[in-house]
Design a protein around this nucleic acid. Structure first.
Lengths: 244, 244
DNA sequence: AAGTTTGATTATTTCGAAAATCCGCATTAA
DNA sequence: TTAATGCGGATTTTCGAAATAATCAAACTT
């Protein structure tokens, strides 16, 4: 612990943003919890304005919700949100995979294999409880990212990334209850093979199933932690009118 | 002009956010322009912190980009971004239409017809230059929104809305050069008819073409205003690693 | 002349106090 | 008892000044 030293080049707001995002995803800040400024100011050692900036960005990322002029809340989790999130992820990820296979070059293939290898090695080293490790989660994220980088669409990738992080919070919620993750590593290898073989249809279907099965696992093991009601929040439900 | 009165219930930051968003979309704040705090403070009559909050949210919406610790820029426009944005919009909008047709009820149909009627009436009243009117743009946005509200996916709708607003800026850029918009009103009616007839495939294709043709129009009339280089910005190109 | 350091200027980022708002509770009236 | 009103404490929101970082140009060295 001690005083956090300067984050090397980054602005302090960006540093707080990253730390808060990690804390929300890891459920150190619990879903639905009220975020009181005084407490956060102490926790992250920054001022009101800086906090407010980080909070504002997290709102746009969907990890925090703003309640009028009554402060901020960690975005609640719910069965409805998880299912919706999963459907949108499948749509986006299928398209990313398709485009990446169409457009990817040799370097892209090499990056995928390298990313898989890093993830796979750490998995072996960590043994049965690899899925609890934040380090493994990072490599897992990097592997899935490597599959789709070559899609060539910055907009799609940015949307994908935000959805992935929100889904990661759900995965994380269930991992503490799951004694061992079933053979996800085999799935990863199969996906990699089909992607590099440029088998678009099969690769898409595998990724689709990969996402949906993970969601089913979360529901089976962690849905008892979700907010009551089923269709949780109304939150930022998109405003009908655009400008002016 | 004059002093802007209290925005009735809304927080001031939210008010500034809405006004800046409108100004960016209408190109009152020009694409690529540097956003200096002192100038903005005067323009919107708020303090640094409040501005910073609005700016931060706009960054997450993709209408503003943050340059390290060198301030903020209005998000640049480019041919590459427009094409990418269009492709993503088509993907999302097709799915929204499909789901809405699957799930929409009678009230949804009625809302579509009402929205169309409002847009159509204003169009007649304004005559040839309706597309220059912000009021019409709002009703146009509301009509397209009404088509997809019933899709039942808050996440998809939120993504759609942000993409729609960014596309609106491009439409707006070209409208000043276009003496008359070709029969978009006929397209809108056709789309509405196919949606209400629950003809999913045809409705999707019409919306697809509607979006792509509009983009082609923008490219034909306004691409000379775009930033040089074609593939403009690297900006917030999604970070490979998720948490921690 | 080209490139580098230095220092003054400008712009951004952070801070904590002041103002505005909300929430719970007691009091009053119906 | 129930609903409405007003007060006190707690929390959020806004503000502008102080600290920090970047930019630009002139002086200096190679």
């Amino acid at each position: 612990m001690g005083t956090t030293l300067k984050p090397a080049g980054e602005t302090r707001a960006a540093d707080v943003l990253a730390r808060m995002r990690a804390d929300i995803i890891s459920c150190t800040l619990k879903p639905g919890a009220k975020l009181r400024f005084e407490a956060l100011r102490e926790m992250y050692e920054v001022s009101f304005s800086t906090l407010r900036e980080a909070l504002s960005r997290l709102v746009a990322e969907g990890l925090v919700v703003a309640e009028g002029q009554r402060g901020f809340l960690v975005a609640p989790v719910s069965l409805f949100d998880l299912n919706d999130l999963t459907d949108v992820r499948v749509l986006v990820e299928r398209q990313c995979i398709k485009l990446a296979i169409d457009r990817g070059d040799d370097r892209w293939e090499a990056d995928i294999m390298a990313s898989f290898h890093r993830m796979d090695r750490l998995q072996s080293r960590l043994g049965a409880s690899y899925y609890l490790s934040d380090e493994w989660a990072a490599l897992h994220g990097a592997f899935h990212f490597s599959l789709v980088t070559a899609c060539g669409s910055p907009n799609l990738l940015e949307i994908r990334q935000k959805l992935f992080e929100r889904a990661h919070r759900y995965r994380r919620m269930s991992s503490q209850f799951r004694p061992q993750w079933r053979a996800k590593d085999v799935e990863h290898k199969m996906i990699m093979d089909r992607v590099i073989a440029r088998d678009t249809t099969m690769a898409q279907d595998l990724v689709d199933r990969h996402i949906r099965e993970t969601t089913e696992n979360v529901i089976a093991h962690a849905s008892h932690l979700f907010a009551q009601g089923g269709l949780g929040d109304r939150s930022s439900g998109a405003d009908p009118v655009a400008a002016e």
